[in-house]
């Protein structure tokens, strides 16, 4: 197979650019919103309130039990039939946020529960309320525990954003598809897209180790 290196180099920047302007912002925004949802859901589950805990469990179950692609299609292609038309970008962000929320909720819940009970008591004994203890004492410790699993969630999300190409969001993979369709060089362009995803994920992984070191600086070596 002859490799068309000219096409490779000329398409590298358009694909990378679509990644930087599409894939990365989509992943970052969805992850940030997803974490907020996840924290709320995790707190609902450990609240001791049956109704809240039940609702949280149902949400996690539905999100984890249905394909992301189906969730995306329900929001973008399904909702218009009940009169709710959402643009591609917001649709993608809603779907990905809800998805991250479902997966990360379990991670955050487990991280909170991994902090010893004595830490709650120490917070209470210095006069803190439950909310304050959670915020100042428990969550900072839970954060450290949750970085590796949440990094997994994030890296999965970065790759899953390629699904947004199917609801017309111009991101990395859609750009590669466009160039491939035009040039008919499918193998080259899809491998090129894979390479760019891989480089993105390498950079993000190094960010993870940095964050782990920072949050773990109190651990004796």
């Amino acid at each position: 197979m002859d490799v068309d290196w000219g096409l490779f180099w000329s398409s590298l920047w358009p694909i990378t650019r679509a990644g930087l302007l599409g894939t990365i912002p989509l992943a970052l925004i969805s992850f940030a919103l997803g974490l907020l949802i996840a924290l709320a859901v995790a707190l609902m589950r450990i609240s001791g309130n049956r109704v809240l805990a039940g609702a949280a469990r149902a949400y996690v179950s539905v999100i984890r039990g249905t394909p992301l692609l189906v969730q995306l299609f329900v929001i973008f292609y399904g909702l218009p039939s009940v009169g709710l038309v959402i643009d591609p970008w917001p649709s993608a962000i809603i779907a990905f946020s809800l998805n991250v929320g479902g997966y990360a909720a379990e991670v955050i819940r487990a991280s909170i529960l991994s902090v010893p009970k004595g830490q709650w008591e120490a917070g209470h004994t210095i006069g803190m309320s439950r909310g304050k203890t959670l915020q100042r004492i428990i969550l900072p410790q839970a954060a450290r525990v949750s970085v590796p699993p949440l990094s997994n969630t994030f890296i999965s999300l970065v790759k899953d954003t390629s699904l947004a190409s199917l609801i017309l969001v111009t991101e990395l993979f859609r750009k590669a598809q466009e160039i491939a369709a035009f040039s008919q060089e499918f193998m080259l362009l899809y491998l090129e897209a894979a390479l760019v995803y891989w480089v993105f994920c390498l950079v993000l992984s190094s960010g993870q180790s940095h964050l782990e070191r920072r949050l773990g600086r109190h651990v004796a070596h």
């Binding site: 004994t125 006069g127 410790q141 109190h218």
Partner: peptide
């Protein structure tokens, strides 16, 4: 709680704080 302060068997210091 305001009136008393507890010293725990297992110290229960906050590990993420100096």
């Amino acid at each position: 709680r305001d009136r008393s302060a507890m010293v725990f068997q297992h110290y229960n210091l906050f590990p993420h704080m100096t």
